[in-house]
Design a protein around this nucleic acid. Structure first.
Lengths: 228, 228
DNA sequence: GCATACGAAATTACATACAAAAAAGTAAGG
DNA sequence: CCTTACTTTTTTGTATGTAATTTCGTATGC
C-alpha cells in the first residue's frame, strides 16, 4: 500500500525470549510479514536452526505451532511450507474477518456507557490518524489492527478477543494490506472516522451498519482490483 | 445433552497414520472430546509418550500443534495444559461461530442454483435427522457440524471453509454440546428443518435471518441456563 | 532430444541424552 | 500445628544421533 519507510526492527535475541520456540515462532512470523520468506517457500528445519543459532528441536516445535496456527503447512516427510494465499483467499479472509469484527463492533458499542472504554478507543483511534498523517503504511495497518483488538476486548466476548489476537490473523491482516491496491485511502480513513464516531456514540445499530458498509466498500474495490 | 450410547472408537494405531505427530494430535483431541482429559489438566510429555508408545519428540510437537490450535496452553518451563473454558467462554464461542456460520449460510444460499449443492446438503441434513431419530448425541452434534462444513464448502469462501474445519472448532463445538443443558431439542431440530428449507430454496435474506434467529434462540436459552 | 531408471545428497521424522528448572517431599524451627 | 529452608525427584527444554524418505543430479535407453 504505502512505501515502507523503516526497515523494521530485527527479531529479538533469544535471551529476551521466554523460550526458543517462542523466539523462532516470532522470528518466522516476522520474517513472513516483512517478506523475507516467500509464500509457498519451503522452510528447512536445519537451515532455520543454523540461522537462529538453535538446534532443530525447537525449530521443529515452532513449525508445528505455526502449522497449528495455519501459517505454515506441514506435509508428512516433506516438511513445512509457508502457506500460499491466493488473492481470492485474502479476499475471503477479509470477508471472513468482517463478520468477526462486526460482532466485536456491535458488542463493544453496547459498552460505551463506560467512559474508560471510550477513552481507550480514543487513544487507539489517535494512533490510526497519527500513522495516517505520517503516511506510514505498516504503522497504519498495525494501528487499525490494534483498534479492533481494543474493540474486541471491550466487546466482552472472550472468544472474539482471543481469536483476533492470534498470530495468523495478524499475519494475514498485514499480508492483505500489502496486497491491497487501488483503494482510495482518503475515503478509507474517512470511513473509519465515521465508524469510530458511531461506536463511541453507543448507537449499536448504526455502528454495525457503518462498519459493514465500510467493509462492503472495501470488498467492492478489492474485487474490482482483482478482476482488472 | 444426550446420554452417550457408544463408547467411542479408540484412537487409530500409529501404523495407519501419516505421522506420529498427527496420531498424537488426533488422540489428544479425541481424548479431550470424550472427557478423558479434564480441562486445565496438565499434559506430561513423558506420560503421553509412554501411553502412545512413542518418544517425547513427536509428543512435544503434537502439543505445540495443539497450542497453535488453541486447545492447549504451553507455559514456559511448566509444560502444557488443556485449555480451561468457562461457560461464559463457551457462550462466547457460540456467539462467535454464529457470525461465521451465518456468513457461510448467506453465501451458500446464493449457490443453490446448482442442483449438486442442493443434493449434497440434503444428504448432510438426512444425517442430522437420522442421528436425531436415533437420539444419538455425539452423532447428532457431529452431523450438525458436518452440515455446516458442507454449507461452508458450498459458500465458496475458502477461509470460512478452512477455519470451520480446524480441529479446535470441532473440539469446542463438541464441548459446547456436552455442556448445553435446558435446550428444547425438539424445537432445535424444527429450527434446523426451517433453516435447511430456506437455504435450499435459495432465498439469501430469509436463510440468513432464519439462521440468525435460531442462534439467538439458542443463546437466549443458554443464557437462561447459565444465570439460573 | 526426451523420458526413465538409478544413485548420491539432502531432509525429515523420530529417538535418545543431558542440563536446567520446577515440583514435591522432608526436616528443622517457630 | 504451621511455616520455612533444603534436598530429592520429576519434568521440561534443548541438543544431537540415526534410519527412512524424498529430492536432485546423472546416466542410460529409446
Amino acid at each position: 500500500m504505502f512505501s515502507d519507510e523503516t526497515p523494521v526492527g530485527r527479531t529479538t535475541p533469544p535471551e529476551d525470549q521466554q523460550s526458543l520456540v517462542a523466539y523462532v515462532v516470532d522470528s518466522i512470523i516476522d520474517g513472513v510479514s516483512k517478506g523475507s520468506y516467500a509464500h509457498g517457500q519451503r522452510l528447512i528445519a536445519a537451515d532455520l536452526a543454523e540461522q537462529y543459532g538453535v538446534s532443530r528441536a525447537p525449530v521443529r516445535e515452532a513449525l508445528h505451532v505455526l502449522a497449528g496456527e495455519g501459517v505454515v503447512e506441514i506435509t508428512p516427510n516433506r516438511g513445512a511450507k509457508i502457506r500460499r494465499l491466493s488473492t481470492k483467499q485474502l479476499f475471503d479472509f477479509l470477508e471472513f474477518t468482517e463478520s468477526i469484527c462486526a460482532l466485536g463492533v456491535r458488542l463493544a458499542t453496547e459498552k460505551m456507557d463506560e467512559p474508560e472504554h471510550v477513552a481507550a478507543l480514543e487513544v487507539c483511534f489517535s494512533h490510526i490518524t497519527e500513522a495516517w498523517d505520517r503516511r506510514h503504511g505498516r504503522d497504519f495497518v498495525t494501528a487499525l489492527y490494534m483498534y479492533h483488538v481494543e474493540v474486541n476486548r471491550i466487546s466482552g466476548n472472550q472468544f472474539v478477543d482471543f481469536f483476533y489476537r492470534r498470530p495468523y490473523i495478524r499475519f494475514y491482516t498485514i499480508l492483505l494490506a500489502e496486497k491491497v491496491t487501488g483503494i482510495h485511502w482518503e475515503q478509507y480513513i474517512l470511513n473509519y472516522k465515521r465508524i469510530h464516531e458511531t461506536i463511541i456514540e453507543g448507537d449499536t445499530h448504526a455502528a454495525a451498519a457503518t462498519f459493514v458498509s465500510h467493509i462492503r466498500w472495501v470488498l467492492k474495490h478489492l474485487n474490482a482490483a482483482d478482476t482488472a
